[in-house]
Write a protein that binds this DNA or RNA. Structure first.
Lengths: 212, 212
DNA sequence: AGATGTGAATGAGTTCACAGCT
DNA sequence: AGCTGTGAACTCATTCACATCT
């Protein structure tokens, strides 16, 4: 099966919207209702969903609970996923707390840093380890996802270290162009780029819409 | 002029790559060299750049310094931009420190929160104010960009408050579907969505490439 | 010769519009 | 009657390939 990141990201959005409806006790919803309520496109919702099966009932719509279950399964959120954060500066630590070890499908399982001042500290219930420990700790704790929150200058070497430890999914906050490893998935989140995008549009008060 | 966010984000990337070359004392570069060095597409670089003028020299390439200057100007990074963060939890505070007040084109100029425990605290050189102060503080300090780092439940009302204060560019970290204001630009950065994307690909060890 | 700038071709993603099911 | 699922039409984006300039 082949699915674009765009479709995938929308599935996450749909799931979140459906959970909100579930909270409100809504049992069934049509693509049109869903679209109107959350500023989405009805046709797109239907097309996205049919990539993964025929979840709807013609003439009626979608049963919220069924769809939540299906999407949770498709996205792999019915299992727990442990993640490691490399670079426990303010951003890394904030992300660690953000993820936490609560009820969600994600848990913060290891934090690494190269700064001796940070090593040994506890953040969100986890003791920060030196980056040298990556190779051992990551397979030991069954960690599958790595978060890069290191300075750009050491981003590539840190990425390579994660690859060596067996990690194949990386969320990269470092503003660096990584030479990606074969078979790995990397999602770059470059906050400066987003700010710069906003600045560009600042100087043009003629536009309107909003981007996702 | 009409330019897609995709193109725009790439301009930011190009600019960063060019700055790196500049550091290394490189004076001139061709689109091919730039592409190979940073895993970009040469044709795309050329097409993106020509949206904003003919910066290159046929047969030679681009003069690094000229291009840096031009891109900086196009992106509006030759001016300083003040930003306000609403929601000074761990994420908001981390972002505040991240931006800081240093040499870059961005400066953290105001922080707001509704939690009395956070109000009055100093973060990255700025005293946190109550959200009620948004309407007054934002125009006073000439702030043009707002960062939403509040819980999803209050995202919409906080967004609306920013709009009332005159803000027209928002970076939204809240996992919420905002009803956007006419004429405003909103960039959603939903960290959970990115994690969920990675999880999906975890279960499919047949893939290879990396997404930007 | 060699690299840009650019129309033309291809590909990806979205929207339309309707057949088919409940 | 109403909504899904889906091919076809369309729009947006990328890549190709080459004429054009230095």
């Amino acid at each position: 099966m082949d699915v674009s990141p765009l479709t995938l990201n929308r599935l996450s959005i749909y799931l979140r919207c459906l959970r909100a409806l579930q909270q409100d006790g809504i049992v069934s919803v049509s693509s049109k209702e869903l679209a109107e309520k959350f500023h989405l496109s009805a046709a797109q919702i239907r097309k996205d969903l049919t990539h993964f099966g025929d979840f709807g009932i013609r003439g009626v719509g979608y049963e919220v609970e069924t769809l939540v279950t299906k999407l949770t399964e498709v996205l792999g959120l019915d299992k727990k996923h442990r993640l490691a954060i490399v670079g426990m500066g303010s951003l890394g630590s904030a992300f660690a707390r953000h993820v936490g070890n609560g009820g969600g499908p994600f848990s913060f399982a290891a934090g690494f840093d190269s700064d001796p001042a940070k090593i040994g500290r506890e953040v969100a219930g986890v003791v920060v380890e030196p980056v040298e420990a990556i190779a051992e700790t990551i397979p030991c704790r069954g960690i599958q996802i790595g978060i890069l929150a290191v300075p750009p200058a050491v981003a590539q070497e840190t990425y390579d270290r994660l690859m060596e430890s067996g990690i194949r999914s990386v969320l990269n906050f470092a503003p660096a162009r990584l030479r990606g490893h074969e078979g790995a998935h990397t999602r770059n989140v470059d906050l400066r780029i987003y700010l710069e995008e906003l600045v560009f549009y600042l100087s043009r008060s003629d536009e309107d819409d909003d981007a996702s």
